[in-house]
C-alpha cells in the first residue's frame, strides 16, 4: 500500500465518525422535520418513519431473496411454482401493501391537516401570511383588528394557529419543518394551514418552492411562547412605534423610505415592503438573512442587492455614512 493511500484511509477513518455526527446533528434543531415540536409535524415524522422502516424491510426481503436465488438455490423452480411466485410476490402482495399504505396515509389526514370546521370551532390564533419576493408579510388577527408585521411569526404554545396563505407574485411555499407540513402559496388562490406548537422555542420557517434569485434567503423566525407571553407580545406588536420623532424618522421620511415602508404612529404608510413599526424587536432582518444588529442594518441599507440578489429595495450607498448610521440606529430603536 502506498503511503499516500494509507494516509487517505486514515483520514477517512478519522473523518467518518465526524461526518456521521454531523449528519445526525442535522436531524435536530430549529428547522428539522425529524425533531417535531408540534402536532402536525409529529404526524409527518410518524408517517416518515413508518414509510422508511417499511421500505427498508421490503428492500431487505427482496435483496435476501435475490441473494438466495443467485447464490444458494441449486434446483430450478417448476414452471407452476414460478408463476405462482410472480402472481403473489409480483402482483398481489405489492397491491395489498400499497393499498394499506394509501389507506394509512389518508387516515392520517385529519391530524395532518385538521378539517376547517373543527379548526374554526376550536378558536386559537388566526392570521394571514403573504409570500412576496423575497419576504413574508404577516397579518395576525387581534382584538383591535389585524396587525401587520413581517418575517416573524409569534405563536402561543398549545393553541391552534390557523393561517390563510397567498402570494401576489409567483408561487412560494410555506414550510416550518418543526411544526407542520408544507403548503404552496399560489397567486390567485388562498390556501390554509393550521399548526400547533407543543414545545416553546424558536423555529425556522422557509420558502420551499423556488421563487427567484434570493429564494434561499427567504426564511422567517417562529417564536412559540406560553399563551400569557403571547398575549403580551401581540399587544406590544399592535401598539404604534416606540419612536415617532427625531433625526432618524426625519431621514426616513426625507429619503423616501416611507414610500415603501410603514411605521405606525408616523406619516410613513408605504405598503410595498415590510412593516417596520417594530422592526427593532425582530431577531433578524431581510427575511432571516442577517442578524438584527447595527452593522448588519447599515450593510443592508447601503446595498441590499449585495445581501439579497434581486431584492425589491434600492441601495442607499450614496447617503453619507453618518446618515446611514442614524437610520440604522433609528430602526434598531423601533422595538
Amino acid at each position: 500500500m502506498t503511503p499516500l493511500l494509507s494516509a487517505t484511509q486514515t483520514a477517512a477513518r478519522r473523518t467518518l465518525p465526524l461526518a456521521l455526527c454531523l449528519a445526525a446533528a442535522g436531524c435536530s434543531g430549529p428547522q428539522s422535520a425529524l425533531d417535531p415540536a408540534g402536532r402536525e409535524a409529529e404526524t409527518v415524522a410518524h408517517l416518515f418513519f413508518v414509510m422508511t422502516i417499511g421500505g427498508a424491510v421490503i428492500w431487505l426481503a427482496v435483496i435476501a431473496l435475490a441473494v438466495y436465488a443467485g447464490g444458494f438455490k441449486q434446483r430450478t423452480l417448476s414452471e407452476e411454482t414460478g408463476q405462482r411466485l410472480i402472481l403473489w410476490g409480483g402482483a398481489v402482495v405489492p397491491t395489498l401493501i400499497l393499498a394499506a399504505l394509501l389507506a394509512y396515509a389518508l387516515w392520517l389526514m385529519p391530524d395532518l391537516r385538521p378539517w376547517t370546521r373543527e379548526a374554526m370551532a376550536e378558536g386559537g390564533v388566526k392570521g394571514h401570511v403573504t409570500a412576496e419576493q423575497y419576504w413574508w408579510r404577516v397579518r395576525m388577527e387581534g382584538p383591535g383588528g389585524p396587525v401587520e408585521s413581517a418575517n416573524e411569526l409569534i405563536v402561543p404554545v398549545g393553541q391552534r394557529v390557523d393561517l390563510t396563505l397567498t402570494s401576489p407574485d409567483v408561487i412560494h411555499s410555506f414550510w416550518i419543518p418543526a411544526l407542520a407540513g408544507k403548503i404552496d402559496m399560489i397567486p390567485g388562490r388562498t390556501n390554509r394551514i393550521t399548526l400547533r406548537a407543543d414545545r416553546p422555542g424558536v423555529y425556522r420557517g422557509v420558502c420551499a418552492e423556488f421563487c427567484g434569485e434570493s429564494h434561499a434567503l427567504m426564511a422567517f423566525t417562529v417564536r412559540a411562547v406560553p399563551p400569557q407571553e403571547h398575549a403580551a407580545l401581540a399587544a406590544a406588536e399592535a401598539r404604534p412605534a416606540a419612536v415617532t420623532s427625531g433625526e432618524g424618522l426625519r431621514l426616513f421620511l426625507e429619503k423616501g423610505c416611507a414610500a415603501c415602508h410603514a411605521i405606525r404612529g408616523t406619516e410613513a404608510r408605504g405598503g410595498v415592503g415590510p412593516d417596520l413599526t417594530h422592526v427593532g424587536s425582530r431577531p433578524t432582518i431581510a427575511a432571516a438573512t442577517l442578524p438584527n444588529d447595527q452593522a448588519s442594518r447599515e450593510r443592508f441599507l447601503r446595498n441590499p442587492d449585495a445581501v439579497k440578489p434581486g431584492v425589491r429595495m434600492p441601495g442607499y450607498d450614496m447617503l453619507p455614512p453618518a446618515e446611514i448610521e442614524t437610520l440604522a440606529r433609528f430602526l434598531g430603536d423601533l422595538k
Binding site: L106, M109, W115
Partner: peptide, 23 residues
C-alpha cells in the same frame, strides 16, 4: 382488467376518507 380495477379503487379511496374540501 386487474390493473384497472385496482386503480379505480385507489382513485376512489380519497373520496371515502376525506369529509371536506378546503385543503
Amino acid at each position: 382488467a386487474a390493473l384497472s380495477a385496482v386503480s379505480v379503487i385507489f382513485v376512489a379511496l380519497p373520496a371515502a376518507f376525506i369529509p371536506e374540501c378546503t385543503w
